[in-house]
Structure formats: C-alpha cells, structure tokens
C-alpha cells in the first residue's frame, strides 16, 4: 500500500482518470491531464485504446517525455494511425464513432455543465476565459469524463455560462435542448469520483479517494452533493501507475 503524500494531487487525478477508461474504447482527449491520463491508460490496462485529438489525429501514441504542448502540435501525430482535418475528426463525434470524451474543466455545476468562457456577467466579464475549443462539441456529442481540481469556486451550483453542456438543468433538459446523445458520465477530482443521478441528473458521489471524508468533499463543493447509500473508497495509486506516469511526464508538464 502506497503511503499518503507519495504523489501530488494532479498525479492522483491523472491515475484515477486513467482507470475510468476501458480497453478497446475510442476516446477523444483534450490537452493536459486528459491527454496524459489517456496515454497512461494506454500503457497500463488499455493497450487497445484509440486516442483522438482535435488537431486531427486518430490512434495517437504519445511518446514518453514528448508530451505535446497542445492537441494541435506535430508531437500528437507521432506513431498515430491517421492524420485528418480538424473538422473531420470532430465530425466523428457527431457520427457517433467516439465512446468517451475526456476533458479538464475550469468550472462545473451540479448538472455537469462546464464553463470555460466567462467568469461573471458575459457582457461585462470579470474574466474572459479562452473559450470552448472543441469542448462544446465533445460534451454535446458523446459520454464525458471530466478530470479537474476540486475547489469550492470551481464546483458551483450554477455555472456563470454553459460552454460545454452537461445535463443543462437536469431531468430531460439535455435531450430537449437538441442533445439526445451523450452526457456526463464521470467527474474525477483529487477528492472523489462522481457520477450523475439517472433521473434528476444531479452530481452524486460514487467513491471517496483515500483519506478523504464526506464532509471534506461537501465543504469543498458549492452545492449539495447527493450521497446514495454506500460510497466506496478508491484504491490508492500503485507503484506501477506512478512510475509509468512519471516515465510519461518526467518534466512534470501536466503533473506539477
């Protein structure tokens, strides 16, 4: 058993996120922790994982120590199966070829809506964030895993702006908005793993990470979390997971 504090929060995040992927899946990965976690999964339990990048890459196989600074850099294509246009790779989501979308997030709400556009009033924003990139397309069209830091200001009751839709306002509002497919599947943080209620579509706690209490998760969350009966406890990162992760990101580009 690994002792506490032998890993950083972002290492834990990458490892727990990687565990959510299954061999044989087609996963559309954003840059940062998702790219790293998908690559980690590929080196561990998912050798048959197919990774897509919005720059226009199918079947990426990122090299250790050569993590690309964006999903539009040449490094994304090394040892890939195919390069294609950005619109073409995004259209694969629309057609339905992608099993899982895998992204980070700046701000999320109880229905899994993500905001990466504005903090404050969009007409007079306190902060103009970079925007959606492919995030809106991915979250609109496939099942999503989001890996993000757990802070009260990031886990809010209602996002200031829905950049990438989760379940909109819960219940059937996502489908009624014209998004009949996909939706939030998992949210992974350094504190816990979350899923969404089948009916209300509100975020619920699936598992707590090692040493984390219910109170701690709730205290760091800006809305009331659903705790349904038994919540399990996540297995801590193994030596193999940690050493593989550090081999992939020796410069701590995404796991500082």
């Amino acid at each position: 058993m690994t002792k506490p504090h032998k890993y950083t929060a972002s290492e834990l995040l990458a490892i727990l996120a990687a565990r959510q992927l299954k061999d044989g899946q087609v996963v559309f990965a954003g840059v940062g922790v998702p790219l790293l976690a998908a690559t980690l999964a590929q080196r561990l339990h998912c050798p048959g994982l197919t990774i897509l990048f919005e720059g226009g890459v199918i079947g990426a196989f990122v090299e250790p120590g050569q993590l690309p600074p964006s999903t539009n850099d040449q490094r994304c294509t090394k040892r890939a199966n195919m390069v294609l246009g950005s619109a073409e790779v995004l259209l694969l989501l629309q057609r339905g070829y992608v099993d899982v979308g895998f992204m980070g997030g700046a701000q999320i709400d109880q229905y899994g809506n993500l905001n990466s556009s504005f903090i404050g009033d969009p007409d007079h924003p306190k902060t103009r964030l970079p925007g959606t990139g492919g995030g809106n397309d991915i979250s609109s069209l496939t099942n999503m895993i989001v890996a993000m830091k757990h802070e009260k200001r990031r886990f809010v009751e209602k996002v200031d702006f829905i950049t990438s839709p989760g379940f909109i306002r819960g219940n059937n509002t996502r489908a009624e908005s014209g998004l009949p497919q996909g939706g939030m599947f998992r949210v992974v943080t350094e504190l816990a793993i979350f899923s969404f209620d089948d009916v209300t579509k509100r975020m619920k706690v699936l598992a707590l990470n090692p040493g984390v209490t219910r109170e701690e998760v709730q205290d760091n969350t800006g809305f009331d979390l659903v705790f349904n009966g038994q919540t399990s406890v996540t297995e801590p990162p193994t030596e193999r997971e940690l050493s593989t992760l550090r081999m992939l990101d020796p410069d701590r580009l995404f796991t500082a």
Partner: peptide, 23 residues
C-alpha cells in the same frame, strides 16, 4: 462548418453541437 459552408458555396451548414449551450 462555417468554413466548409463557405467552401461549398452554400449559405449554412447544419450541426448538432452548440445546441442548449450559452455559446
């Protein structure tokens, strides 16, 4: 899709994302 519509000589393209969002 906007560049593609422009390239195709048609005034728009239909798509299934962005729906329901504030974008």
């Amino acid at each position: 899709m906007r560049f593609r519509a422009g390239a195709m000589g048609v005034p728009f393209m239909p798509m299934r994302s962005m729906l329901g969002s504030d974008v």
